[in-house]
């Protein structure tokens, strides 16, 4: 009996302690759950505050004439390194000395005192370049590249692929930098947010003319993409540009005709 009693007492105390342990567990788990809930609530409020500050909202700043702040990858922005044929020698003697007033300005009333002070002229004729041959580009040559000889400078960016060809064949070889900066400028003005999804992978071909002062005219879609939003965005991208920059001084023509295609990438 005493043993039994002891056993019972022990059982009771065991039950009590077990119940106590259970209760503590419930409290602890409940506490954790509650604190999680509380912290969750608080983070919600932080989020709301952030929303109020409204720091980042829009998509339109692409037409601020700034390029993105990503380091360029030279292997990605390559231009023609294999001219298809020898271009004619440039007519250097026809090169007129550029004056400060050659740069178009919005209001023509030059500050005489300022502009005349620095004498500017092209440097005297420099001896013909003797450059070591450029290294062969370290790119994978797949079958399709070697054979195709389209005179177009393709450029890929985050919004898609575009390519430019100046119909005056020598222009691209002689003034590669001009073609490159033109392609870059047009890409910056292309608002791909307005395109519908079916435009991806389609290609629109257009032609336009760049006058001596860099202005664009005679924009034509020569081959539509079959997607209205893409075709109209092409027109708008070009119309947004006042000037692509004056044609190189050493170029004797009064304008160039440009063939251009653009193909938005999968976003």
């Amino acid at each position: 009996m005493p043993v039994m009693q002891e056993n019972e007492v022990e059982k009771k105390s065991l039950l009590r302690e077990f119940g106590g342990a259970l209760l503590l567990h419930v409290i602890v788990i409940g506490g954790i759950a509650l604190s999680g809930f509380v912290f969750h609530q608080r983070s919600q409020r932080w989020g709301e505050n952030a929303d109020l500050s409204g720091a980042v909202q829009a998509t339109m700043v692409s037409s601020i004439p700034l390029p993105p702040r990503v380091r360029p990858r030279e292997d990605n922005v390559l231009a023609s390194e294999h001219p298809s044929e020898a271009p004619p020698q440039p007519t250097t003697k026809a090169e007129p000395p550029p004056k400060p007033t050659d740069i178009p300005v919005q209001v023509r009333q030059p500050d005489k005192k300022e502009s005349k002070r620095v004498a500017e002229r092209p440097t005297p004729e420099t001896p013909k370049q003797k450059q070591p041959p450029p290294p062969e580009p370290q790119k994978a040559t797949s079958g399709s590249t070697g054979g195709v000889k389209i005179a177009m400078q393709a450029m890929q960016s985050r919004i898609g692929t575009s390519a430019v060809n100046v119909t005056d064949q020598s222009f691209g070889a002689r003034f590669g930098y001009y073609v490159r900066q033109m392609n870059q400028r047009i890409s910056q003005q292309w608002f791909t947010q307005t395109l519908d999804t079916s435009a991806q992978g389609r290609r629109v071909y257009l032609t336009f003319r760049i006058s001596r002062d860099g202005s664009i005219s005679e924009i034509n879609i020569v081959k539509g993409s079959g997607n209205a939003s893409l075709d109209s965005s092409a027109n708008r991208a070009l119309q947004r540009i006042d000037s692509l920059g004056p044609l190189p001084d050493a170029y004797s023509g009064s304008y160039i005709t440009v063939q251009y295609y653009f193909e938005p990438s999968q976003q």
């Binding site: 601020i64 993105p68 960016s157 890409s187 910056q188």
Partner: peptide, 26 residues
């Protein structure tokens, strides 16, 4: 830059403005 929690960015579509088009000229 905006000092906002990462969760906010994750919830919203954030465009970084000029982050499109061509790269800078080196």
């Amino acid at each position: 830059a905006a000092f906002i929690p990462a969760t906010f960015c994750a919830q919203d579509t954030v465009f970084t403005g000029t982050n499109k088009g061509a790269d800078r000229i080196r």
